[in-house]
Each structure stands twice: as C-alpha cells, then as structure tokens.
Design a protein around this nucleic acid. Structure first.
Length: 479
DNA sequence: CGACGGGACGC
DNA sequence: CGACGGGACGC
C-alpha cells in the first residue's frame, strides 16, 4: 500500500507534448530522416524526426516518427500526406497520430477521436451560437448542447464535430480559453448490443438523409429564443405524465438545499415532485424544478413565492416552465382560490393534524413571528440586499470555520449585513469559504466586525483573501 | 493552522 | 501488415 514514492517526479514518459503532436508513419525502408524532414516541414514546426532502425543491423524498419510543435500541424500533415508515394515504386505511406508514449496500445488513433471537441459555454448559447463561435476553425459537421432532459435547460456544455482533425486541433489551440476546449472522449465505450436499437434511430449519423430538416421549428425565427422540444421520447404514459403546465422553475442565487426548497414549496398542498439542479460537487446550481398535482397549486405557489425573499436578502424567482401559456382564465383563478381556501382551513385546524401546513413552514419564517436563526456574540447590523450577481468583486474575504463550516444561507444572512455582498462560496470538503463583495469598505466592515466571533456556535476567522491564483506563471514573468 | 477552478453525450 | 532513440538535469 505504501509506495514511498513521495516525490512524484515529472514523469518523463508523458512528454508527448502537446498531445497528438507526433506522427507515426509506416513507410518504405529506404526513407531517410532528411527526406521526411523535407516533405513534412511544409506543415509546421518539426521538432524531431526519427526513423526506427534495427539495434544490430542499423537497418530501417520502415517505421518513422515526426514530432511537430503543435497538434494542428501534425494533423494537417497527416491529412495531406497519408497515402502519398514518397519514392517512385514504393508503397504509399500511412500516416497516423502516434499513440502517446505512456499508452501501451498500438491501435491506430482514429479520426473519430480527433474531430469532436468538448467545450464549456454560456448557458444562453444555442446550437446556432455554438456553431457561429467555432466555425472559424473549420467546417463543422454538427453541434450539440447538453441539456437537462426534463427542462431543456442548457448545462453549459457542448460538443462540436469537425470534419477534419486539424480543424478540431485549431479550435482547441486558438479558441478563447474560457471555453476550455478539449477533445471529447468517444461516445461509444464498448457497445456490445447494437441490434435492439432499430435502424431508424441511427439515421442521424448517416449522410444520406439530406432531406432531414434539422430545425423544423426554428428556420424562420432567427433571433427568437425558442423553447426546445423536449418531448422526443414521451414520458411514458404512467400516472400523470409530465405536462409542463404544472411545473415551476425556481431560481435562486443563494445555495439552497433540496430540503429547503422542498420544505418551502411543500407549504402549498399538492407538490408531487421537487428536484434541485446540481453541479458536479453536488451543490446547488440555483435552479430547481417543482411540480404540483394540479394547476391551482402551481398558480398559487408562483403567486406567493415569486419574489419571496428566502433566506432574507435572496429573492426567489418562480416561473412556469412553459412560458407563453395563458393562465388568466377564470378556471385558473378558481383553482387558485380553491388552494387558498384549502390552506386557510388547515391553518384554522392547526398543524398538529398532520396534513396541511407542515411544521417546517414555521421556521422558514413563512408564518408567525420572525425568529432569528442567528445566534452570535456580536451585534449585527440589519439585513441588506445582495449586490447583483454580475457585480465585479472588489474585495474577497477568506473565512476559516471552527469546528465546521456554517450553512451558506446562514453565512449570507450574516455577511450581507455590511452591504454589497455578491456571493458566498464554501470550498467543498474544507472548513473555509470566500465572501465576495462589490465594495471594499463593506468587506472591511464585515471583517472588522466578525473576525474572531461566533455564529451559531461556530468560530470564524475572517481575513482578506489572497488573490485567486489564475495563471500567474504566464503573465508575471514577462520582464 | 486554513485556499479557490470547473467537464460528458438516452444504449 | 506496422510502435518507441538519443541525449543529459539545477542558478
């Protein structure tokens, strides 16, 4: 278990750098390094040429490697030189991107693995935006944005398939670093069964279906943000299909837990589903979907909870997921009235009778006198509004918690009181966090007031945060 | 002591 | 069928 290799050397075997910048060629035994250098130098900066020779006889084995400075150069050379005859009478050469030296596989690297990139994009991007952004690097076969299957909401990730490896490589090398473009892992891991997928469903990949219109709804409406069709495969006709007229989407800037959202929307009777959208850390992304059994409950929930501040200072935004529906009907109003009546009666009957308002509602501050959930040894200013989430951070505080971090909502409640708080960020798995402020003085006030004090039994060290480490090694040593 | 930053497709 | 050398680190 304990391999005492504590000093991990920079493994010298991984230096196929950058990745996919080296070519593997199968050529005639008479080809020389000089000739290869001549024929391949037109495609880029050659760093190394090597013809593999037998150890004893020193004769060429017809295997050669050509290392370029960039992957795009190697790819271009491959595309142009594969199949070329270098010397009269010899067989056409084969040119592939070499397997990385650390890999033990000698399988050919296929174009399939070199033509699709994986990028991080704004959530507002459509496939069209994605294509327009990346077409400058080459011809695009298709673009796909990864979306939530239920809501159609973008996950901020996308794929772009080019026709040629050199185009994908150019995109990765030259696109804005914010896109974090990398080669996509091939989709098919090890498809063992292929037959239960009928042939009809595979037509999207074949090139014969020109007549297939990719954007049946969208063609005539250029700038209109069309809501995407998310009913390609029906939600099976089980009890109560997912019709969106009863689905709400709540957006919040505070990191609310599933339990908090659930408790809040469960105050209105009829909630049948509640799902927080999470990111890779399992933290709240600020969106959740809530579905009620009936339109009246959904209407009532939107009416009462849209704009509601929870926790204080954090304004919830609640919307129906199928925008554009007309809900001003008298039927809707009656349904809402019915729900209101339902809730009133449960109040009169008291919460002790199981159904109706849950006990959780009271400590959400939804009913009854506002009881502070903050206990502290320092006197706090009153609550203040959060700064807009797109505010520029002028100062950050670094907070260490002992013995354990406080919940995000509590921290927002405490740290917002000095004004201009943009957001609270806890480091997952650690006992530290960052508070972003739009105003330096507000941050300093918070620091001075809160440092060394105790909130809900948790002691806090509050310090100015070091600047984020970014890419200091790139810019700092230019002189 | 106590430090941030990421990522995956209905087979 | 067709897969991996040579050189040498740090002031």
């Amino acid at each position: 278990m304990d391999e005492s290799h504590t000093n991990a050397k920079p493994t010298p075997e991984n230096l196929d750098d950058p990745p996919n910048s080296r070519l593997f060629l199968v050529a005639s035994r008479f080809v020389t390094e000089e000739e290869l250098r001549e024929r391949f130098s037109a495609f880029g900066d050659i760093q190394d040429v090597w013809v593999v020779k037998d150890k004893q006889t020193k004769e060429s084995k017809g295997i050669c490697y050509v290392k370029f400075a960039k992957s795009s150069q190697a790819c271009l050379a491959m595309e142009e030189m594969h199949g070329k005859v270098l010397q009269d009478g010899s067989k056409p050469i084969k040119v592939f991107i070499a397997q990385s030296r650390s890999s033990c596989s000698h399988r050919d690297v296929e174009d399939e693995e070199l033509t699709r990139i994986f990028v991080m994009i704004p959530k507002t991007f459509s496939e069209e935006d994605l294509k327009n952004t990346f077409k400058e690097y080459g011809d695009i076969e298709y673009c796909v944005i990864i979306r939530n299957k239920l809501t159609g909401e973008s996950k901020g990730l996308g794929y772009v398939r080019y026709y040629k490896p050199s185009q994908a490589a150019l995109a990765i090398e030259n696109c804005d670093k914010a896109y974090r473009a990398i080669l996509a892992e091939p989709r098919n891991k090890a498809s063992s069964s292929e037959d239960y997928n009928s042939m009809a469903s595979r037509s999207d990949y074949s090139s014969g279906a020109d007549s297939l219109n990719m954007y049946p709804f969208n063609m005539a409406a250029p700038a209109e943000p069309v809501s995407y069709p998310m009913m390609d495969y029906r939600t099976s006709a089980g009890s109560g299909g997912t019709d969106l007229t009863r689905c709400l989407m709540v957006s919040t800037r505070a990191g609310l837990t599933q339990e908090q959202i659930f408790a809040l929307f469960d105050i209105i009777p009829g909630m049948e589903y509640c799902e927080l959208q999470r990111d890779a850390y399992g933290m709240s992304k600020g969106h959740a979907m809530i579905r009620y059994t009936n339109l009246g409950s959904a209407l009532y929930a939107k009416d009462k909870l849209n704009g509601f501040e929870y926790p204080p200072g954090n304004r919830l935004v609640v919307n129906f997921m199928d925008d554009g529906e007309d809900r001003s009907s008298s039927v809707g109003r009656m349904a809402m009235q019915f729900v209101a009546t339902q809730m009133m009666s449960s109040v009169w009957n008291g919460p002790s009778n199981s159904q109706g308002i849950k006990p959780t509602a009271s400590h959400l501050g939804f009913a009854g006198p506002p009881v502070s959930r903050i206990q502290t040894d320092v006197s706090l200013p009153p609550l203040k509004k959060l700064a807009p989430s797109d505010s520029k951070a002028k100062e950050r505080l670094f907070v260490v918690f002992s013995p354990a971090p406080l919940p995000v909502d509590v921290l927002e409640d405490v740290f917002c009181r000095f004004g201009s708080l943009i957001e609270v960020h806890l480091v997952p798995g650690r006992k530290v966090g960052y508070m972003k402020y739009a105003d330096k003085q507000c941050a300093m006030d918070a620091l001075a007031t809160l440092h060394g004090h105790i909130v809900n039994g948790v002691k806090m060290k509050v310090m100015l945060a070091d600047p984020p480490r970014e890419e200091s090694h790139k810019r700092l040593r230019t002189y």
